[in-house]
Simulated assay, not measured.
Amino acid sequence: MERGWFATQWGRPDEWEFREIDLAPPGPGEVTIRVRAVGVNPADAKHVAIRRPGVDLPAAIGYEVSGVIEAIGSGTEIVTGAASVGDEVIAFRVSGGYATALTVPAAKVLAKPRALNHDEAANLLLAGTTAAQMLDVAGVRAGATVLLHGASGAVGVSVLQQARVIGARVIGTAGRGSFDRVERFGGVPVEYGPGLADRVRDLAPGGVDAALDAVGADEAVDVSLELVADRARIVTIAAFDRAERAGFAAIAGAQPESAAFRDAARPRLVELAADGRIEVPMARTYPLADAPEALRFLAEGHPGGKIALHP
């Protein structure tokens, strides 16, 4: 019997249930994946913390996994083409990834990049597609100078790497202890806190073309508005109220246009990872049964990399 995590009430991960599940066999257009690693993201807990439109209880937890095809529906191909039992794959924008196995639409499944192990691959696409959309919405192109708030986090690290591929220069805010991490992935670190705008001006005497906010703090929004004249080139994934009031973009995976963009961005990210141009730095792994503990660690703030669960 397979097992998976479910939120049976709105609240904290330590209130979830680790249940036995009946796994349906795949029909046409579906794939069953034996999970090797589960990606852990803040959204896993956030989306069931309080009542949300479109989410029904009990809610199966988890949006991205890496594993091996155990069964495949008749005549079915995955996003990246033909596939067979035993192939290593990743799946993103699924429901119920915190499980030992799951059956999902083949339209959510791609071949796993060989350059990434299962832990890394399971954490590639949620952060990666978010970062890709931030860069796209802000119109970041080669030669641009970008201010990135939260450069040492998971989304920030993916932004840094994708901006480097584009040919853009990124000035990334971080605590001084995370400067090496920002530099490793191609950014120019700057310490957040009082005087941030002036420190950014010193690093970008020609000005800042765009600002990307992965933090949501008032400082991040205030400095972005101060330094970037065109509000169409300011994007946040966290400060939704400020974005509405000030007239800049706020994006989230639940928005239909965001979902469509992120689905379209998946093959390119897999290609970049396969070529070694995107890494997924890892912090820790936990047994699947310890999912609430993994999310507690993530909520502490600065894990220093991604987290994977092992069934």
Rank of each mutant, 00 (worst) to 15 (best):
L102I: 12
D119F: 11
Q255F: 12
G128F: 08
A131K: 09
G75M: 10
P105K: 01
A299P: 10
E120D: 08
G187D: 00
V190F: 10
A274W: 06
E219T: 10
D290T: 10
A144S: 15
A121K: 00
A24C: 01
W10V: 04
V140F: 05
I69V: 15
A254D: 13
A49L: 14
K306T: 01
I278T: 11
L272V: 04
V79N: 11
T285H: 13
E17G: 03
G97L: 05
A122K: 02
V85M: 12
L225H: 00
G276K: 07
R36T: 04
T285Y: 03
I21T: 15
P26I: 08
F297V: 14
P267T: 14
R141N: 07
S224H: 02
G175C: 09
G167T: 09
V31W: 05
V68I: 15
A24Q: 12
I50L: 12
T145N: 02
E15H: 09
P267Y: 10
A174H: 05
A45K: 05
I69M: 09
T285D: 11
A260Y: 07
A131M: 11
E191V: 15
S84N: 14
L110S: 15
V170C: 03
V215R: 02
A210T: 04
M134G: 13
D56M: 08
A127V: 15
G96V: 04
A122D: 06
F92R: 08
A174E: 04
